[in-house]
Amino acid sequence: MLELDGITIGYGKTTAVENLTLRVEQGEAVSLVGPNGAGKTTTLSAVAGLLRPRSGAIRFEGREIAGEPPERLVRSGLALVPEGRQIFATLTVGENLRLPLAGTPKAEAATALARQLDRFPALAGRLDDPAGGLSGGQQQQLAIARALLCSPRLLLLDEPSLGLAPLLVDAVFQTLAELRDEGVTVLLVEQNAVRAVEFADRSYVINAGRLVLSGSREEIGHRETLAASYLGSTTAIADAAEVDRKEGDS
């Protein structure tokens, strides 16, 4: 469904993501994890149309989409829940939710809205309140509901658990699990790697802009493997140094 083919992305002179290749199949839940600054958000921003990769291709349902404006991508079935939730604090909850429904026939819009309010009952009672007044967990619900109202075939989530209390993190992952069961394809970016890998069918681990590990839940689910890939950079350097020394000796 989504293919990143050797994409390289940079800001000015720095390169944030290098030659990254990644696939998400229809109906799959895939996570992209890695330490802070690894290039996860950058990758997601490129998929959502906020950044243009320097090279490489991004294909969504077989169509090249790199460089398309985000508002067009949303319409073609790709929605992003941005990092830090980014709800419109001065708009009411209802206005936030109706934004993606612009242009949808009234009856259809009402059904869609009702469906998400069933999913997030906490929002239903607060439709007329400014969204800025919601708690962190509710804001996250709002952000997810808003993205779902774009009727995405692929849902992108950027750090949905960031800054939430453990209980609320559980709730977020439960929501994600429900969505997966409903058949929504999910690409999740997380710093909370253990939870993300546990949740996803397949995971990619990146560090310093490069892919260091990928595989199914079973393949990289072991904490040791995951931890090793996180520490990848340092151990790799140590290994390389080891090799160098040996070669020098011989």
Partner: peptide, 24 residues
């Protein structure tokens, strides 16, 4: 109006507004 709400959203956060389909 729909456009009016979109404008308020865009004024608050232009990028996010585009992410929910507001035509810039």
């Amino acid at each position: 109006t729909t456009v009016g709400v979109q404008m308020r959203a865009a004024a608050e956060n232009f990028t996010t507004a585009r992410l929910v389909g507001v035509k810039a």
